[in-house]
Design a protein around this nucleic acid. Structure first.
Lengths: 139, 139
DNA sequence: GTAATCCCTACTAAATCGATAGGATTAATA
DNA sequence: TATTAATCCTATCGATTTAGTAGGGATTAC
């Protein structure tokens, strides 16, 4: 299941991509428009900021803005930040590999083989999709 | 993340596919060979039985057996039984569709579009993979 | 009748998720 | 400079899910 965190995060990014002029966008505006609990969203955007996807400006008239063009923000990046590893098992994860306790030999493991295929096909989608696709903006 | 339940279930099915002669295979044998907690596995195989993937024989020399040829057991079926819906959000699930509380219009939802693509690509893998592929048996 | 096996229900500890609370810090502006 | 509006940070909470255990009932081979 996709977590609410990721769902909200994607919606928020889409909103920001669509509403970006010169001014940063406030959490409260996004929360209201997208029906997301404001305090919860606060934490999500903070995470995206720490990961380098968003920038922020504090104080009055502050808010969040994209640090790259929507077309340069890949879903691989966003999903990894919000949802964690793309692979369904650590033993096929590219970025967070871990050996299984059980499994004496990975190459003979039936689950391993299947999960590599799933990972690759999902990765293909995420690598081919940017925030520009989600938000229908051209940049 | 793939649940242990699903992982164990797949390993068990693979084991049964490889070890099937005329005799049913016992939970205890699978558990020992695949390093799975025996009582936990018991419940998993029961689930697979109720779903019609496995058959069982009670009493001495009883055990579990496949109800179809490995090549006829699709991963779509197994994954749905063990892991639940393949879609990451209910609003793109083929078998368990549910509307989102938020989302006034699905067709305009950026998350929706992305998750349909993920679902389709994952589905493609599961539809193209059978237990025979996992277990390297020909049947 | 006994041992081996599946079948069923209930319980538990730990982790995760979704959300809230409360305030510290920063910056614009009146 | 005081006020206000924002981000930033930490802690907490209830509900749910996960992974597993416990204990026994029912069935069958021998």
């Amino acid at each position: 299941m996709l977590s609410k965190k990721t769902k909200y995060g994607l919606k928020a990014l889409t909103f920001i991509a669509r509403n970006e002029g010169d001014m940063p966008v406030q959490v409260s505006k996004i929360a209201k428009s997208e029906q997301i609990p404001s305090k919860f969203l606060e934490g999500i955007l903070l995470t995206l900021k720490k990961a380098g996807v968003l920038g922020s400006k504090k104080g009055k008239h502050g808010g969040y803005y994209l640090r790259k063009e929507p077309s340069e923000i890949l879903m691989t990046e966003v999903m990894r930040v919000l949802e964690g590893p793309i692979a369904m098992v650590p033993c096929v994860s590219l970025n967070y590999y871990e050996k299984c306790d059980d499994c004496p030999d990975e190459h003979k493991c039936s689950v391993h083989k299947l999960m590599i295929e799933v990972r690759d096909s999902t990765l293909k989608v995420f690598r081919n999709t940017t925030l520009a696709d989600l938000s229908n903006t051209k940049r």
